[in-house]
């Protein structure tokens, strides 16, 4: 059971208050109709599943309801931090994330 910091409630809470909302920063194709079946399939189904640091979305379901970004290590389960989506994305891009 993790302890997760919610950047909106500004508090660290038990995991049971949150829902994991999958990989963070997956961009929906700007013009889905222009996407090929393969591109659209990648967007729908292909996920990173790294062994190491992973950017995830969590929603504070039992709390403020907000979705935010968490950087978590999939092996050690260490959490590097929580950020609002905007702040997290900036950091993610700065790290060279795609």
């Amino acid at each position: 059971m993790f302890l997760i910091y919610c950047p909106y409630c500004k508090a660290t809470r038990e995991e049971e208050e949150f829902h994991n909302a999958g990989e963070a920063f997956i961009a929906r194709p700007a013009d889905p109709e222009a996407a090929s079946d393969e591109e659209w399939g990648d967007y729908l189904f292909m996920r990173k599943n790294p062994k190491g640091w992973h950017w995830e979305q969590w929603q504070h379901a039992a709390g403020c309801g907000r979705v935010f970004a968490v950087k978590r290590h999939t092996l050690s389960y260490r959490i590097a931090g929580s950020w609002t989506l905007a702040a997290g994305k900036a950091l993610f891009l700065q790290e060279g994330g795609v």
Binding site: H19, A21, R28, Q59, A61, G65, V67, L85
Partner: peptide, 13 residues
Amino acid sequence: LSWLERWHQTEWP
């Protein structure tokens, strides 16, 4: 509700 919130917050803020 969660679905609407997620799309609003992540894709169309």
